[in-house]
Design a protein around this nucleic acid. Structure first.
Lengths: 169, 169
DNA sequence: TTTGGTGTTCATTTTATTTTGAACGTTATG
DNA sequence: CATAACGTTCAAAATAAAATGAACACCAAA
């Protein structure tokens, strides 16, 4: 006898119980969390579903589970793949692709830095270069500010590897 | 003779030239940058204006300069004050309040952490507590995941002071 | 080669966020 | 006191972001 007898919040799937309420809380949690990072809510819901799920899930499962459209699910998974936050589970029957959440903080942060932070720092370097070129007269006040900006950028650049190192286990 | 004779992009204000093109680039830069942090564009434009301006600016100046509404400017300045990213300049004539940008990376990051990051970590702690309480049966898989989540949260908590220390000049 | 199952793309719709601007406090000044 | 200069608030409008779903591509099995 395994559960599913005291609350309507549990129901059987395979041979283990699913705590529907808990799983919903976790999805909600990630939905809120990724919002802070500027990612769409559905991406958080998808990641949360995979994070808390006992077994890998396919696009269809997520669509059913979350009540989102296939398009939304597909795009969300794409983003998560790009970030390296989920990976395909190999060796499951059929053509359907199953995913599981990557749960290593190190690689999650690494993926975010690589895909979201680094590109911004790169473009910042270019823009600051343009600013400097635009300060033809070499005005001292402008020059000071541009230098400060560039200083910030450089500090961010050295901070990231340190951050990643500190998070590495 | 001070500039303003080779391009229409410069014009005189007080006794120093304003490089209109450069200042626009800086505003644009900050507008893009704060977007990454999840703050509205106008907030970045306001901060950028103050950052690059030779002298402190009042709400009216910003409204004129940026072509935004008084309401937008007021709310933007409020947000920047809360973040500690701007400060009122004391001792200027009249009732008008002038602002200048705080340009210490340390305090900018500090303000962002205090106002944006810490509250999220706090609420995360509460939510994770709820999850744990919700896992009544003590299911081992769920327990493992909840523990991992809590671990992440704790690591973020210890990371922030380190980050701030490293940024402290 | 057709059919059915999967996944992706992208123009459109929906939803969320940001901006606006009119109404309203407040305070200095005539 | 009346007026004007400033700043704030908040409901409504405008804009930006995300979700939808139909069309399509692909591939494996029949």
């Amino acid at each position: 006898m395994s559960g599913a007898d005291d609350k309507e919040m549990d129901f059987r799937v395979g041979d283990a119980d699913v705590n529907v309420e808990l799983e919903a809380m976790v999805r909600e949690f990630f939905a809120d969390t990724v919002r802070v990072l500027g990612l769409p809510r559905s991406v958080g819901e998808i990641y949360g579903s995979l994070f808390i799920s006992r077994e890998p899930l396919a696009l269809d499962d997520l669509v059913d589970l979350l009540g989102i459209s296939k398009g939304s699910g597909s795009q969300g998974l794409k983003m998560l793949r790009t970030l390296g936050a989920v990976s395909e589970v190999s060796g499951i029957e059929g053509r359907k692709i199953f995913y599981e959440a990557d749960v290593e903080l190190k690689s999650l942060v690494g993926g975010f830095i690589r895909e979201e932070v680094r590109p911004h720092l790169r473009s910042a370097r270019v823009k600051i270069g343009h600013m400097d070129a635009c300060n033809e007269g070499g005005d001292v006040h402008y020059d000071e500010r541009i230098k400060k900006l560039n200083n910030w950028r450089k500090r961010a650049g050295v901070m990231l590897p340190i951050l990643q190192k500190l998070l590495g286990k």
